[in-house]
């Protein structure tokens, strides 16, 4: 977004052309983001923030086109499947530690 206001008599002024789209594509995109981040272990509030914040323009575009209610439904559907489990990562000890390993760090 340019900082200055548009000047209609400026021949160098940016001209915007809108590409068309379909609701089905937007819905699929919204579902993809919700499923991916639910799999990563993000919470409902964190995933919804992804859609509500303008910085994340892809997800935010879906939120603006589909509305809050549809996005909430998509997120809840995804969390109903992927949110029921929690993945944990267990790091192996650093080189030189006794073998067999004793687990030194556990992440979730």
């Amino acid at each position: 977004m340019p900082y200055a206001d548009p000047e209609s008599d400026d021949p160098q002024e940016l001209v915007g052309v809108e590409l068309p789209g379909s609701e089905a594509q937007t819905r699929e995109m919204a579902a993809a983001f919700a499923e991916e981040f639910a799999q990563l272990g993000y919470t409902r509030a964190q995933i919804l923030a992804l859609y509500r914040r303008a910085e994340y323009a892809g997800a935010h575009r879906a939120w603006r086109l589909l509305g809050e209610d549809q996005i909430v439904r998509v997120v809840d559907e995804s969390l109903a499947v992927w949110g029921r489990i929690r993945r944990v990562v267990i790091d192996a000890p650093a080189c030189g530690a006794p073998d067999p390993p004793t687990w030194v760090r556990r992440r979730s």
């Binding site: 977004m1 915007g16 590409l19 789209g21 575009r61």
Partner: peptide, 8 residues
């Protein structure tokens, strides 16, 4: 400020 894309 300009027309927005409605696509993916």
């Amino acid at each position: 400020q300009l027309p927005e894309h409605k696509t993916w």
